[in-house]
Design a protein around this nucleic acid. Structure first.
Lengths: 227, 227
DNA sequence: TCGGCGCGGATTGTTCAACAATTTATGGCG
DNA sequence: CGCCATAAATTGTTGAACAATCCGCGCCGA
């Protein structure tokens, strides 16, 4: 029988038995989805995946439960689990979360690391000069993660991580994805500028406007894409 | 063999087979923990619980995975799962989340339902007059849930629900729990007053101060309790 | 008496195989 | 060409089995 193709990851050769293989499977799937190897809407067959990953169906199901909790995957009763295919409504939901969390972190964060933000922004600038879109996307994500880190709350960080994973799905779902990241490098620079001066209120307001623009632009392209 | 005692819930008599029993088990455990029938630190034995709930160990494990994701339960590898026993650090974590989410909802919430808040506050007042502490605790929780509802974000609401569940664990963990809720009724009334006047900034500031006080008080009692 | 030491029982982690319930595909029939 | 019944495939759940790990308990030596 031919290999189920989709995933050809390192099998648990020297895998520690009797350690959380469920979590391991979840992380493998998470990465496969983030990298776009599993497209939005794709069905995750229990038999195929269990065989491809060399785990039992039961263990695979445990991983599914985790990913469903992160909204990376959708569970349809008696039909199976599918990679989340975000629509306009989910984009709005994502930005509702971001518009709440990020400005709040900027306003009230107790450990706002401006130096780290500057480092990320510089990386993004170099990536833009080199024309490396993937690196810019990555830097942009790290930028917003860094903002949230100011809250020092693991639960808030976890939510933000999940939301950013959903964002990646949105990008993957767009057929002909234009380059969103290029034009947001300058916005991030402006934000860092304000934060360096301690202008938290202005930074929070700017960030909210920034997120509004990004949402509108994304929604525009998404609706044009669906038609 | 005698019933494993701890839980004597409605067994799935007419339970719909082939529907999410894992989720059902999770909800039963969630309620048992919230009601205090399962004390913080208690061990959840797989055999006992599986038998008590008439589900297989595999299904029970799925429920455990869900509850662990909600931080209601702690999983210790090869040792079992235990009802979360919150310490001082977790209390601080809870308030880091609340101090971020709630003021942000007040400041930027798009559907702030002042009328609903007034209703909740009135219920709390009547409960206070009647000396019904449980009703006051419940009303207080509904008050803060209602605040978060202004965000219109299901993911933010879910996080807040989880954090409030953790709060209940904190109360259960305190041996001789003094009545925290009584003195916060007036604070909620003051908040509603501000919100009715549209004073969002003042309300957010007041709310942050309120949460700081509550955290400090809780931490004080917790540390006195541990000694 | 007391502090390791090791052994056996209990519990968790994981797999396998089976069956019920449900969805999906198939194919014929009007 | 559409529609319904039947078969095949897939999911939901269970029970049992086995490996790995932890826990308690008695033994031994100092």
């Amino acid at each position: 029988m031919p290999t189920p193709s989709l995933i050809r990851y390192a099998l648990p050769d020297e895998a520690a038995p009797h350690a959380h293989t469920g979590a391991w499977v979840a992380s493998v799937l998470r990465k496969s989805i983030a990298d776009g190897q599993l497209e939005p809407g794709a069905k995750l067959s229990e038999q195929q995946l269990a065989e491809a990953l060399s785990v039992s169906r039961n263990t695979l199901r445990e991983a599914f439960t985790v990913l469903a909790g992160e909204l990376i995957v959708t569970r349809v009763p008696n039909r199976g689990v599918f990679v989340m295919a975000p629509g306009a409504e989910q984009v709005r939901e994502i930005y509702r979360v971001r518009r709440l969390l990020e400005p709040a972190a900027v306003l009230w964060g107790t450990r706002l690391d401006v130096a780290a933000l500057e480092g990320v922004v510089e990386t993004a600038q170099r990536a833009r000069e080199a024309g490396d879109v993937a690196a810019m996307a990555s830097a942009n994500q790290r930028f917003h993660e860094q903002l949230i880190r100011a809250t020092e709350s693991s639960q808030v960080e976890r939510l933000m991580t999940q939301v950013l994973a959903q964002m990646r799905l949105v990008f993957h779902a767009m057929r002909r994805a234009p380059d969103f990241h290029t034009r947001y490098v300058d916005a991030n620079i402006a934000l860092v500028q304000l934060l360096r001066q301690g202008e938290r209120v202005a930074a929070a307001d700017e960030l909210r406007a920034y997120l509004d623009r990004a949402e509108a632009e994304l929604l525009g392209h998404l609706e044009a894409d669906e038609a």
